[in-house]
Nucleic acid binder design. Sequence first.
DNA 1: TTATTTTTTAATCAAATGATTAAATCATTT
DNA 2: AAATGATTTAATCATTTGATTAAAAAATAA
Lengths: 252, 252
Amino acid sequence: MPAPKSQKKVPSKTTKVEPGKAAKSSKASPPKALPKVSARAEAASNQTDRSTEARIKAAAKKLFTQKGFDGVRTRDIAEEAGINLALLNYYFRNKQALFDIIMWENMQLFLGHILQYFKDNQDPLDIQMQFLSEKYIDMLMDNPNLPFFVLQNMQGLTDIDLSKSGHPMFKEIGKMRNAFLDKIQASIDAGEIKSIHPLHFIANLMGMLIFPFIAKNLLMSRVGNMSNQEFEALMHERKKLIPIWIKNMLAP
Amino acid sequence: MPAPKSQKKVPSKTTKVEPGKAAKSSKASPPKALPKVSARAEAASNQTDRSTEARIKAAAKKLFTQKGFDGVRTRDIAEEAGINLALLNYYFRNKQALFDIIMWENMQLFLGHILQYFKDNQDPLDIQMQFLSEKYIDMLMDNPNLPFFVLQNMQGLTDIDLSKSGHPMFKEIGKMRNAFLDKIQASIDAGEIKSIHPLHFIANLMGMLIFPFIAKNLLMSRVGNMSNQEFEALMHERKKLIPIWIKNMLAP
DNA sequence: TTATTTTTTAATCAAATGATTAAATCATTT
DNA sequence: AAATGATTTAATCATTTGATTAAAAAATAA
């Protein structure tokens, strides 16, 4: 009998196509290339988009955000999306490529709002705090698992890794950071707030905004057995309270 | 040729022993039961304990705490511990049983200090804040991955799950919580602090203590490229600052 | 020493899992 | 309708991974 094994190894570049890059005109075998991803890119997370590709992405987003890369099997995604397992690879090449897409979208969601706002806003610090607290907690109530996901996938990344990947978002982050640090410093110089290291300021602010969503189960189950509804009511309260706490905390 | 396959299925109760329960006197086949775990239990996390069992546990603790259950393969643990893969199952039955041990030890570490202190301490609230901030941040500097691990494994647990597992620690948590809530309420009644929902208080306190360790990479890489040493110095600062911030935040 | 028990090793298994293939179905164009 | 290309399916692969087995080695008891 012949040996019908070990005939594949490195996917020959002639038949394989890099994810994201369109297949030019290679007369490759069965699945030619990734379908028109860009054509649908702008319709992201639109509930009315029930295309196969969108269903897979939605399922992947839900599961990856909930359980992380290692906690999800491709079969889970296929089942959640109600599609054949092979379609996942047909549309997204492989698990890692699909995860990377979800990863970047979640990063955008996590930092996008702030980035957009802070980039060229000139309001005084306390107004900025009010806006941020309001918008950010609203976003977190819609995406409660987002902080954990982002932090989880930040764990392994070093500064070098971050700068290596030349994603345009990092330039935005840099700009925002500088604008924000300047704003804090100006407030200190003007005597509006006590002197404080920027990291303390940002850690306190982010901690108060984000921590309840990360520790929700711990807080809910052990601190006054509360319902989801009560939890949401308290998070709603926090939108107004956090700016006040920050202000009091740093009153000169 | 005979068929030397599919002869095992459900581990017959006569030869298998539940993890944690000692094998009585069953004259079972090869590995009789878990070795004298209890005999070494008190020597936990002692660096001088270089026994095989301790090496496996140390390796498992390191990797599980860093990467979670799904992120670690039993082979990783074996390699990290420098032992044969089969020894992991010989000493700890299976991956899940080993993980559970690490899980409970980490829970203890995460809550143990607070539990012990708050159980019957009668100091005023501001003194308690100072003590907690000091000790807890010290502990977190020694175990920076602990919060993420605990929160990660709290994710799936509901209140029912927690009470179902009759671990004695949960009774302690209940006692502590009540004592702490009483203390906060008393301070409010005495007019020492502004009225505040206990969850807000605890979320703010825990958030300020814990969040920097969860978001370390995010904070370090994007907020003023700092070294580990600088980060540690700032965490050291926070030990004194957090009680002050809390106090100012809630000044009546 | 010899016998017995405990510990360790190498080899292997079975199930799970990411990925691929070839054929079938569907849609679009000519 | 026929041809062409895109999408979907069922079956299967190859590898990884948690776990087991049988035998060897080491330690302990007799």
